[in-house]
Simulated assay, not measured.
Amino acid sequence: MSAVVRSTVWLGFFSLILVAWWVMYTMVMQMDLDLLGRPGAMAERMRQMDPGMDMYMPMARFLPLFVMWGAMMAAMMVPTMVPTLRAYEDLMTSANGTRAGWLAVLAGYFSVWLVFAAAIAALQLLLLHGGVIDMLGIAKSRWTAAALLLAVGLFQFTRAKEICHGVCHSPMMYFIGNWRPGAAGGFRMGLGLGIFCAGCCWGFMVLGFAGGVMNLAWMGLATLFMVIEKLPQIGHYVTKPMGFTLILGAVVVAGWPVLTGG
């Protein structure tokens, strides 16, 4: 029976990921965008509208934005939980863990990302009404996009990134040092892991404003990188190279004179 339960919960876990990606794809299609978040004819007209005059538009209201970001968090961040949940399973026998605790770890982790979804939805509204981004969440200035790329690239080299990534990269050590039994304990540990994960990966969410928050290609690449970054065998080897890549991207987007001949 334990094998059946294990298979069922893992099937539900991966089904959640697929549903989240389906929701994002559906939203992109309904907004007349392609997989790169580029607008079709109808969406292009929407981009030209004054956000102050079109408050009825979904992308100018908090609740639709929160739903969108919540689905995005599920699509992008839940896959990164696989090493963590496997680590918890390894401790279920030796450390008196339970399947309820396993589910609670996932619930606590995702709760943090739902709070993050609410915060970044509010940020998107502020940027929209401040004229920094358009209705589709795309930066209006290449300088804004370059600044975001530079900020996230530099963050890859900070002590804060190192600490947060260390926890995300080695969830087994976190569990050993912070073990709490039962569902309540699992939820508490999930919250802690979620906070460290948000501290590690927030920049890749914010980068959505550089190329469009509905860009499924960006979402897929960012998800792939964050999964790789958390793999115990190779995670430490990709963090700083990604930082250099993002900084180079900032230089290219800004159109640095040495590169452009200007």
Results as ranks from 00 to 15, higher is better:
V5L: 14
S7K: 04
T8R: 11
L11C: 14
F13T: 13
V19L: 12
A20P: 06
W21F: 06
M24E: 10
M27W: 12
D32S: 15
D34M: 09
A41W: 05
A43V: 10
R45F: 02
M46Q: 06
D50E: 13
P58K: 13
M73S: 03
M76R: 07
P79R: 02
P83E: 07
P83C: 09
Y88E: 08
S94K: 13
G97A: 08
G97N: 08
L103K: 09
L106H: 08
L106N: 11
Y109A: 11
Y109S: 09
W113G: 00
F116W: 06
A118T: 03
L123I: 05
L123S: 06
Q124E: 09
L128A: 09
L128F: 06
H129I: 08
G130W: 13
G131W: 09
V132I: 15
D134K: 13
A147Y: 04
Q156S: 12
V167C: 01
V167E: 01
C168R: 11
C168I: 10
M172V: 01
F175N: 01
R180E: 14
G182H: 00
A183R: 06
A183P: 05
A184I: 14
F187Q: 06
R188M: 14
G190H: 00
L193Q: 14
I195K: 02
C200F: 06
L207Y: 02
M214H: 15
N215D: 12
G220K: 08
L221V: 15
K230N: 04
L231A: 10
V238W: 12
P241A: 10
P241R: 13
G243Q: 11
L246A: 02
L248E: 01
A250M: 09
V253A: 05
P257S: 00
P257M: 01
